[in-house]
Structures are given as C-alpha cells and as structure tokens.
Amino acid sequence: MNWIEIFRSGISTGTVLLIAAIGEILTERSGIQNLGVEGMMLVGAMAGFKIAYQTGNVWLGLLAAIAAGGLLSLAHAVVTIHFQADQTVSGLSLTFLGTGLALVLGEGLTGQVAPIIPRASVPLLSQIPYLGQVVFSDHNLLVYFGYLLVPITWYYINKTRPGLHLRAVGENPAAADTLGVNIYRTRYLYTFVGGCFAGLAGAAISVAIAPGWYSNLTVNGQGWIAVALVIFAHWNPWRAALGGYLFGVLRRFTLDLQGPRMLFGLANPFFFNTNLVFFLQMTPYLLTIIALVWGSSAARKKRIGSPAALGTAYQRGERGR
C-alpha cells in the first residue's frame, strides 16, 4: 500500500468536504441551518461541468457553479427568513429541488469530457521529504485554495467586525438588532455565501477531483457528510479542515484495501471476497455517525453548543421562542 498516495489523495478529496463544510459553518453561524448542501453541491457540480464543457473554459465553469449554488440557496433564504418556514423541511426540499434541477439540466452530460482545473506544485515546499509530496506537490489549485480558506475564515469569524456581527446574529439576534445589525440582511448574505461554497465544492468534484458528470452519484452523500462535519467541528474551520482531510484519507484507504492479496501478513479478505467491499463502502457513513456521537459528547463536556439561535426564525418585535 502506498501511504503517500493515500494521504495525497485524501487531502484532495477532503478538500471537497472542507469547502462545503466551511460554507455551512458561515451559514449556521448566522443562525440559519441549511440542510440542502447535497442539492446545492449537485447543482454546482452539474453547472461547473456543463459550462466548462460548453465553453471549454474551466474557470467560467467554476463561476457558474458558485453562482448556481448561491442562487439555489436564496430559495432557502426567502422561505426560512421571510416566510419563517421550518429550516429542516426547507433544507430537505432544497436537496430535492437541487437533485431534480441537476438531473434535468445535466441531461446528456454523462460520458462527456470537459477541461479540468490545472495542477501545480509549490516551489521549494514540495521538496520537503514526505510532507512536501503529500501536501504541496501536483495538487489541483482548489486544494491550495482550501489551505488558504481555513485560516481566513477563522480570522474573519473570530477577529473582524463583520465576523463579530455574524456571531451576534447567530447567538442573540434580538440583541444584535438593538445594536443596529441588520438581521435579515446578515442572514441572507451568509446563506448565500454558504450556497456559493457548496456550489464550488460540487464543481471541485466534477471539474477537478473526480472529473465528469455521473448524475446524482457525482456527489453521492458528501453534502450530508459535510453537514455532519460542521457539527463534529463545533462550527470551527480548523476542526472542519481536520475532519475533512481525515475523511478523505479514510475514504482512499478503504479503496486501497481492496488491492493487495496480502494484508499485514494475512490473506486479504477484501481481495478474495469482493462482496465484503460493501462493508468497506459503509465506513464513511458509519464514521460520520461515530464522529457525530463523539463530537457532540465532547462538545457537551466542554460546554460548546451550536449557535444559540440556530434553526429559529427572527421576527422583529416578537418574543423569541
């Protein structure tokens, strides 16, 4: 088994989860929970691939994916912020809507080839033994974007004035309102931003990490894993990055387990009985459950909670529930 390759590709696939999770962290910090990440990612993956295929320009594809994810998230924003609908149900319908839109508009894209995001190595840093090979060499550019995104969002949320407003809106909207923060505008903005990130994450699959359009198998539950990751990460970008990369590595590890005849000196059961592979395929989903159980009990011990106003609609002049 080639460990360098496992970690390398883990970081690459983990970038998808990272981008989606950071978008959702921003949305949830404003008090809006958007469970439609899966749908927005699918639409992003479809739009990114379709535009890249039609124009031959992958950057236009990325822009289209970001715009598509953002536009779709606005449906959630209007329904939950203005109409005060239940955020869980709205998020679910967003997933349906996104899946339907992606399948209808992505008709005929399967099997096509589109340009993909270029790869690059970081000079000097890629020369570091092991670490350089894993982290800094021959990754697509979105992976490096992911590296930058984590500290920037952390700094933005915790150290800047708009970040403070964002947290205030998510923790105590009534208090933020009295201080002159526009709750509606803030929530619209971050729901939209979260949607843009989800769209980008979808395109990261379809035009970079696993190029191509495979209808709803393109995203295949990663949007939901990203939502779970947010809870596991306690709404902290650093932990989201850690979780995302960990998931990526484990995903690649379970794939590679099927290759060798011998495993740790024993006959490899996954090589000789291919049906056992279904249990390997369960691991990301089981791990998500374990991560949630672990993450939420750790959060309770440290008294870290979700943003206090998460999932509740705000209506000026009405007492909070």
Binding site: A75, F83, A85, L92, L97, T99, G100, G106, E107
Partner: peptide, 26 residues
C-alpha cells in the same frame, strides 16, 4: 420519461411551495 430527474424536480418544487404557503396559515 426523460429527463429522469423530472419527478424529483416536481417533488422539490412542490415541497418548497407547500412550506412557503404555510406562512399564509399562520
């Protein structure tokens, strides 16, 4: 029927409209 996602699309839009219309009830 093709495209295959059309039933998902109708279901998603329906659910959205239903939860939006709930505001009229409350």
């Amino acid at each position: 029927i093709q495209p295959s996602g059309i039933s998902f699309l109708i279901q998603g839009i329906t659910l959205f409209l239903v939860i939006s219309s709930d505001v009229l009830l409350r």
